[in-house]
Design a protein around this nucleic acid. Structure first.
Lengths: 232, 232
DNA sequence: GGGTTGAATTAGACGTGTCTAAACTAAATA
DNA sequence: TATTTAGTTTAGACACGTCTAATTCAACCC
């Protein structure tokens, strides 16, 4: 059996692989998980022995199919939980991440099935992240652009925001920039500071580039994964 | 912070204390948790250092108020989860125990509050066990009698069944002997074998003494904790 | 090509929770 | 009272996941 800790490593490596592609470096995993590099080296050795990843010494690491499947399983749990907590237990959009992190390793297959059923097998979680399907086949990467890829005057629909930083999440939730909302870019200042107008409310909001980079958007007429109904 | 394992020990000691009173022996804890006695001795030493229990060497162990509070917190989590899974996720009466055991250590205070609210602050779980209140004051022991305390002809209402043994639970669920149902004792055979008739369905069922001892009952007119609506 | 530098790995230690084997206690028996 | 016995504790080992300090590697630059 795989420990919680091992599952966390696999999930982290999967995320890093999605962001920057393989190989994933020891130090990036260490930073992501808040561990020291030697700890990561040691753990990565164990995961390699179990066939969950491949490793080239001093280069980095890449998940095997098996490792990726485990990561997707954990991610499915995480995102189903986020969706469930939001829809059925009245959690706000930005509160769910920690709770899901704590529970994701401890739910049974049965629980997973029942939660999915209660939600009607959703395809995205409240942040707009795609929920891996029950068969754990790798989801095709949507190839969405980022808010900072666009310029003044562009009208866009928010598809996804990052769930990594609770503060950022609170800020966006506050600002009304949530998956499914339409925004228009009204200004781009030096250093990438972006000002957007939320079309429904008319409200304007400035976002630092670091945040703008984590917001995935699409053109209003494009297809996209279903946005979740965000009920903050 | 207290580890999951420590919480499990405290919960076990609490249960054993409820059943047979203090002091609780090393070997009984070991058997309850499926550990060896030396392991228990070692753990009990650590719990004593933390002020969670008192210990007399070669005699046994008794929870302090602080230890009891921790046990009640875990028990509250466990029983709220059992109730929630049964009522909102369509779990059957006998399936919930394992799931609750896995989750009880990992839910937040916030989660506890929201689950309790979603259930309307219930006082008993689906097996009829009392759910400790949010302030974690020790529940007064209900002083219910046991099915094996009664004789032929007695008509009784089931208040509580033990949730320790999934097989037994399945058996009782199958037989329709659930909290809130009225039964009549139709026969008591040698070795304590008890035959009961479920009043609603008219069905008869024989129960070995070991099982009869774990079923808590009351007279039909007595007060009792609210029975849960058992929807198997 | 040799030196510098930043990242990765090895070495060695520690805390936690578990085990088996051996020693010890205390209560019951003779 | 001496002995047996059942149960408890101590001693010592091990796996896991983590750390710090020391070493090694690879890439880059003059």
């Amino acid at each position: 059996m795989l420990s919680d800790v091992m599952e966390d490593y696999l999930k982290a490596i999967y995320s890093l692989q999605m962001e920057h592609g393989p190989p994933v470096s020891t130090s990036s995993i260490a930073e992501y998980l808040g561990k020291t590099p030697p700890t990561v080296t040691s753990m990565v050795g164990k995961l390699e022995e179990r066939g969950l990843l491949e490793r080239e010494k001093y280069k980095g690491v890449e998940l095997t199919t098996e490792g990726e499947t485990v990561a997707l399983e954990v991610l499915r749990h995480h995102r189903l939980l986020e969706a469930y907590l939001t829809e059925h237990l009245d959690y706000s959009w930005s509160e769910v991440h920690e709770e899901a992190d704590a529970l994701e390793h401890h739910i049974s297959e049965e629980f997973e099935r029942r939660v999915a059923a209660a939600l009607g097998d959703p395809e995205v979680d409240p942040h707009g992240d795609p929920i891996p399907s029950a068969d754990l086949t790798p989801p095709k990467s949507a190839g969405l652009s980022t808010l900072s890829d666009h310029g003044v005057g562009d009208t866009l629909v928010v598809c996804r925001v990052s769930d990594r930083d609770p503060e950022e999440l609170e800020y966006l939730s506050e600002a009304g920039v949530t998956p499914g909302t339409t925004i228009e870019i009204t200004d781009v200042a030096p250093f990438g500071m972006v000002t957007v107008r939320v079309v429904d409310s008319g409200r304007e909001q400035s976002l630092p580039e670091s945040v703008a980079q984590t917001i995935r958007v699409r053109a209003p007429d494009e297809e996209c994964e279903d946005e979740s109904v965000s009920t903050v």
